[in-house]
Design a protein around this nucleic acid. Structure first.
Length: 108
DNA sequence: AGACTGACATAAA
DNA sequence: GTTTATGCCAGTC
């Protein structure tokens, strides 16, 4: 097909859209469930899970950031304490510093 | 311009 | 089973 394929746009709109997309996905995570950065990145269309972490650090104050963990079920080193406590309040039990992703992992 | 850092993931030891 | 090293993408120095 002769239709052009706008693989890359230099518009900042795409960047902002991705930013909101990530937030929307995180906000879509129901209580008592958790998701990994890589999952959110894949659903939101982010190229790398690092973008998800950046979004949370910049504008995750209004989002259930405590429902976002790493692929191993271990949250960030500086938030592990708060993270597990918030999750525990939602019914997510953690073994030490690790959560059972295969049980609590949210899947759309 | 290049190099370092970071709320990560995956592979190898 | 855990720990270590490398790669990724974007932002910052």
């Amino acid at each position: 097909m002769d239709a052009v394929a706008p693989a890359r746009r230099h518009n900042a709109d795409v960047d902002e859209e991705l930013h909101e997309r990530v937030r929307d996905v995180i906000a879509s995570i129901p209580a008592g469930r958790v998701a990994s950065y890589g999952d959110i990145a894949a659903i939101a269309g982010a190229s790398t899970p690092r973008l998800v972490g950046r979004v949370l650090g910049e504008d995750g104050h209004d989002l259930p950031w405590h429902r976002v963990l790493r692929a191993d079920g271990t949250p960030a080193p500086h938030l592990v304490h708060k993270q597990l406590e918030l999750l525990r309040g939602e019914g997510v039990l953690a073994d030490g510093s690790r959560v059972d992703m295969r049980v609590y992992r949210w899947r759309p």
